[in-house]
Amino acid sequence: MCLDPLSAALSAAGAPVGPMAWLSNIFSSFGGLGTVATAASGAASAYAAVQQGNAAQAAAEATAKQQEAAARESLQQGEEESDRRRRAGAGLLAQQRVAMAANNVDVSAASAIELLDDTKAGIEDDAFAIRQNFRNQAGNYSQMATNSRAEGGSAASQGLWGGVGTILSTGAQVGSKYSHWARNRNSAQGSFA
C-alpha cells in the first residue's frame, strides 16, 4: 500500500489516516463520542419539544374551529326553535279566536283583544327566551374556542422555550464534557513532553 506524502506525514505525527479519519478527527475535536452524543441528544430533544408544542397548538386550533362551528349551529338552532314557537303560538291564537267565536264572544271586544294580546306577548316572550338561551350557549362555545386557542398558543410557547432550555442545558453539558476532556488531554500531553 502506497501512502501519499500528506498521509505519511499525518501518520508519522500520530494522526489517523484512512476513510474514517475525518470521523475520528471530529470525535476527538469535540471531546469524544460521549460529547457528540450528548449534543445530538440535546438537539433531538429540543426539536421534539418544539414539535410537541406545535402539535398541541394544531390540535387546539382544530378544537377551536369545532367549537366555533357549534356556536354557529347553536345560533341557527335558536332561530329555528324560536320560529317554531311563533308558528305554534299562531295556531294557539287561532284556536282562541275560534273558541271565542264559538262561545259568541266578540273578538273585537276589548276583553277579547286583551286576552289575545296577552297570549301574543307570552308567545313572543317564549320565542325570545328560546333565542336568548341558544345565544348564551353560542357565547359559551365561542369562549371555549378562545380558551382553546389560548391553550394552543401557550403549548407552542412552552414547546419553544422547552427547546431553548434543552439547547442551553445541553450546551452546558457539552461544554463541561469538553472542558474535562481538554484538561485530561492537556495533562496527558504534558506528561509526555
Rank of each mutant, 00 (worst) to 15 (best):
A110F: 00
A90N: 08
Q67A: 15
R72N: 15
E114W: 07
A56R: 08
A99C: 02
G53K: 04
A172S: 05
H180R: 09
I130H: 04
R185M: 03
A127R: 03
A46S: 01
A39Q: 00
R185N: 03
A121H: 12
M20I: 13
L168G: 02
R87L: 14
A99V: 13
G159P: 00
N147K: 12
T35E: 00
S176A: 15
G190K: 00
Q66I: 08
A21P: 14
Q67D: 06
T170Q: 02
E151C: 10
Q57M: 13
S157K: 09
I26K: 10
T119Y: 02
A109D: 10
S7I: 09
P5N: 07
N103H: 08
Q143V: 14
A40E: 00
R183K: 00
A188W: 01
R185L: 02
A182N: 06
D117F: 06
T38H: 03
S7V: 04
Q143P: 09
A156E: 13
P16Y: 01
T63R: 12
G34C: 09
E73M: 08
T170N: 05
N103E: 01
E68I: 06
Q137G: 10
V164R: 04
G163P: 03
A127E: 05
A13R: 01
A58L: 04
V50N: 12
M1D: 12
G163F: 02
S11V: 08
A145E: 04
A43P: 03
Q51V: 11
A121F: 01
R183G: 07
V50W: 12
L93F: 03
D126A: 06
Q137C: 06
T38N: 07
Q57K: 15
R85Y: 14
A21D: 01
K120E: 12
A48Q: 00
A71P: 08
E124N: 11
S157I: 06
R149D: 05
T38Y: 10
A193H: 01
L33K: 15
E81M: 11
L6G: 12
F27P: 03
G175H: 07
Q66G: 15
A44S: 06
T35N: 15
A59H: 06
A37S: 12
F134L: 11
A37W: 08
S142T: 12
G122Y: 01
T63K: 14
Y47S: 06
A48D: 04
L93C: 01
E114R: 13
S154Q: 14
G18M: 06
Q132A: 09
S169D: 03
G190S: 05
W161Y: 11
T119K: 14
